[in-house]
């Protein structure tokens, strides 16, 4: 699945679409392939449940984590790390960007538009069809347009991340796949892969057939009472 990705993968999507989990798991997957990988936390929107909260855990696994450091990591300020530029420019480095939710979050990405021009990158739109405003193709396309406009960057592909948290089952994922496929056909973008919690991944892979990419997810953004 990872051979479908460029050197730099930028995940955008609406608030709560699961970008962070998809980004963390993508970065760890690339790392396992032996690539020097940086996870770039560009989330200026949500101070809860964002990648920097598990920074130490990810760094211990060998990932480079680029996010505002120290006191700023707890703030709801639109601060990004100056190290982001280094990840884009270093051709030896693989980068996975986690951009904050909605068009508002995508504004933070816009400042790198010129820097990214001509480089080996792709912007991927993560979709959870179980979220309130992205349940049908019309809503999804409206959100995608807003994000493209705010960032000034065109999306290159879509990810199906349909889930109901702990209550996700095969139907949830397949329904999402069907909706995202319709969006893909309508706007002429590829459905790059389907992300799904690890214990369902094999079942999903069988149901979707050999061609469809599947990214098994391990959960990093946990509630305080999660085991």
């Amino acid at each position: 699945m990872f051979d479908r990705l460029k050197r730099i993968t930028i995940y955008v999507g609406n608030l709560g679409s699961g970008k962070t989990e998809v980004a963390v798991n993508t970065a760890l997957g690339l790392l396992k392939l032996g690539k020097e990988t940086a996870l770039v936390d560009l989330d200026i929107i949500n101070p809860y449940f964002r990648a920097r909260l598990v920074r130490k855990q990810l760094e211990d696994m060998g990932l480079k984590v680029v996010s505002p450091a120290g006191r700023l990591s707890f703030a709801d300020l639109p601060a990004v790390s100056p190290a982001v530029k280094g990840v884009v420019e270093n051709v030896e480095m693989t980068g996975v960007f986690d951009v904050g939710g909605d068009d508002v979050g995508a504004v933070a990405l816009g400042q790198y538009r010129e820097l990214l021009e001509g480089r080996d990158f792709q912007m991927i739109f993560v979709i959870n069809t179980c979220r309130p405003f992205t349940r049908d193709p019309e809503g999804i396309i409206r959100y995608l347009d807003g994000i493209q406009e705010a960032s000034g960057i065109r999306a290159h592909g879509l990810v199906n991340n349909a889930n109901l948290g702990g209550e996700t089952d095969l139907d949830t994922v397949l329904n999402g796949f069907s909706v995202v496929s319709r969006v893909a056909a309508r706007i002429g973008l590829p459905l790059v892969f389907t992300a799904v919690k690890r214990d369902l991944a094999e079942e999903v892979r069988l149901a979707l057939g050999g061609e469809a990419g599947v990214l098994p997810l391990d959960k990093f953004m946990k509630a305080p009472w999660d085991p």
């Binding site: 608030l15 709560g16 959870n128 179980c130 979220r131 309130p132 889930n163 109901l164």
Partner: peptide, 15 residues
């Protein structure tokens, strides 16, 4: 009936 995934803050609004 539909089952959807919501944030608490969104649920306050929808409720």
């Amino acid at each position: 009936m539909a089952k959807i995934l919501m944030k608490g803050n969104e649920a306050i609004g929808e409720g």
